[in-house]
Design a protein around this nucleic acid. Sequence first.
DNA 1: CACACCGGTTCACAGGTGGTTCACATCTCT
DNA 2: AGAGATGTGAACCACCTGTGAACCGGTGTG
Lengths: 121, 121
Amino acid sequence: MTEATQSRMEVLDVGPLQIIPDEHLARADGRALMLSIRELRLLTELARRMDRIVTREELFQLVWGREMRIRDRSVDVYVRKLRVKLEAALPGWSFIHTHFGLGYRLAAEPKHVVNNGFTTR
Amino acid sequence: MTEATQSRMEVLDVGPLQIIPDEHLARADGRALMLSIRELRLLTELARRMDRIVTREELFQLVWGREMRIRDRSVDVYVRKLRVKLEAALPGWSFIHTHFGLGYRLAAEPKHVVNNGFTTR
DNA sequence: CACACCGGTTCACAGGTGGTTCACATCTCT
DNA sequence: AGAGATGTGAACCACCTGTGAACCGGTGTG
């Protein structure tokens, strides 16, 4: 029964993070995270484009469903909110990486990988 | 979905380095590199002319989109920035080779290859 | 109805990044 | 050695991003 429903269920895995959009749920090492709708939505869209850079404009369009006005900082603010919650749930990992001038990229990476040219922030 | 769009996607392979210009992304052994726009652009243009010597003038024209002024050192400075990041990401490899009086050449070569009759620089 | 709470939005300021340009060091070739 | 080419570190500054907080409207509760 539940099996049947889940056969087509979208499940996104990002390292120790698991996102199940249809259940409006995200888990960190199995534990449910408390995310608001917008937060989960943003995380989901990032996860669907895992390891690829997504521009703010595209993210805004995907999550808010309309064109982003210039200088709108909503995406940044929500990225911040997500980072705080993800950091609290999974310290030692970093997930949302900033690509200056381009946008954000989601990928599970261990933190503070020193100056080796890879993502550190 | 996204797969379809990627059918014609340009992907440049230089040894353990992979450059995907359309995603504004370069990977070292699969791991995303943090490069600035200019850096990626320069790396891309070099990669498109892999293993061939490219003059500063041509590189400048390709990356900056205008004529290079005499004594402009921008290309050198960015070559340096790239070298530092590539060295950090893939120690043991060297990629950007200087050809004195001519320009630069991109090619993945193991480092410190001594006495093999060829020059690494 | 009054009120506390919560999420979403917006704003202002802090802080960081990248592009450009210099100045000086080092190297190459003659 | 000398001239010119290239390597390298750093300063400067415009612009981008991070961050804390105020504000606002809806909702649930006493």
